[in-house]
Design a protein around this nucleic acid. Structure first.
Lengths: 111, 111
DNA sequence: AATCATACATCAGGTTTTGAGGTATTTGGG
DNA sequence: CCCAAATACCTCAAAACCTGATGTATGATT
């Protein structure tokens, strides 16, 4: 058991820095979080495909010379808009966890 | 996809308020988090059993009159100690997510 | 007679994640 | 030359996990 991130939220959030290909999204998640979070390829690519399919991001293949082509993703309007809700969901979650981690103390006897 | 809590952490944390039976732990998690988090019975009881087995909590059956007996859990020293680490893990996680939700802005052209 | 709340617990079925594998190229060490 | 690691995409089987239902038992409420 461990806390687990919502990869959709993370992917959409990193794309706020500008268009980016999958491998880089993965790298940024690892680096920005100082290795606390990681988006393994086994779930990153399926996540990206779903996000594209649902219209949160759009993708374009950019050929490279002497390197594999890149599929560059960028936020759509729908994707940008969704970040607002996702951020709220994160805040609610974090508030909830914090409330439990800082529970009301047991009654101290005082007299 | 959604953010997901580490139930171990939550259970140990609520037990800081004092010994408590499973059903109440579940209620508190729901209430303290204002319904953002919930520990369904299907995962709470297995979690509690594992925590007991691993020595993080100890349990005692308390019979009730005309009601089902309660299994009251309390933190062991090991359990109390573990909270420190779990809290750190939460903070690292939250810091990581926050870092990604507030990413460096794309270079604004400034010339 | 239902239904809800208390209070424990399990389990089938579904979803998700992990980790390995697959393709293809460049760079760097030995 | 060969091996490993980094870049860059992607898939899939096996394992892990969660949801929601079910089961037991009683009291209060409608």
């Amino acid at each position: 058991m461990a806390f687990r991130e919502d990869l959709d939220t993370l992917v959409l959030a990193v794309l706020q820095s500008g268009p980016m290909h999958g491998y880089e999204i993965s790298r940024r998640i690892r680096e920005l979080s100082e290795k606390v979070l990681s988006a393994g390829e086994g779930k990153l690519y399926p996540c990206l495909h779903k996000l594209e399919q649902d219209g949160y991001v759009q993708a374009e293949w950019i050929p490279q010379e002497n390197r594999p082509a890149r599929k560059v993703y960028s936020l759509t309007d729908k994707g940008s808009g969704a970040i607002v809700e996702k951020r709220k969901a994160w805040e609610a979650f974090a508030t909830g966890v914090t409330a439990i981690l800082n529970p009301p103390k047991p009654e101290a006897s005082h007299g």
